[in-house]
Amino acid sequence: MHVDDPGFWRAGAISTIAIMSVILIMLTIDSLAVISPGGANVPPYTVINQHIDYKFDAKRGNDVPALGAPEPLFGKTWDATAAAALIDKGKMVIQSRACINCHTFFGNGAYYAPDLTKAWLDPAWETWQAMTGAATREEAMVKFLMDPEKYRTWTRTMPNLGITQEEAEATVAYLKWMAAVDTNGFPPGFGRMRSKP
């Protein structure tokens, strides 16, 4: 076998692809366990019933989600079935309105509107809460999603996408759940800005 012979490189290509594919499949099996709801990095959907924070972990060197005391969403504690249905609905809202073509989720998507990875925890909701006259953060988020053109805060306005009350609540639940996913410290510095007085 000689390097001038294409057959030599053909054998090399086949064995390389085989080895890499096997490694990818093994890592995929492991990763899917970690990212399934209730896995090491992704919380169960019932996490929407808890207080969620984002704090610096000195050992890991980045911010990590911190789950706290019970904190009902929309004044209600959602059992596993109801929470799963709410999250399913929230994802369906996100897909049907093509949110990812303006926003990003975990940094993936378009770049025209803010990243929504930790949107639930964003300090900006305090402004919206005052603007909408809502009693809670989740209510402010619902009001904003149902009529974003009314509550614009800068030059780019989110269009009214005909989101209903039920759909808005499901979307808020989705964002709360997503804020509790361990994203290896992405987006960087978010926890630091959040804790600023």
Binding site: L27, S31, V34, I35, F106, G107, T183
Partner: peptide
Amino acid sequence: ILGLGHHYFWIGTPNY
């Protein structure tokens, strides 16, 4: 094939 991993930094996947 394993370069795919550069998309798995921040989506909840393990840190390896």
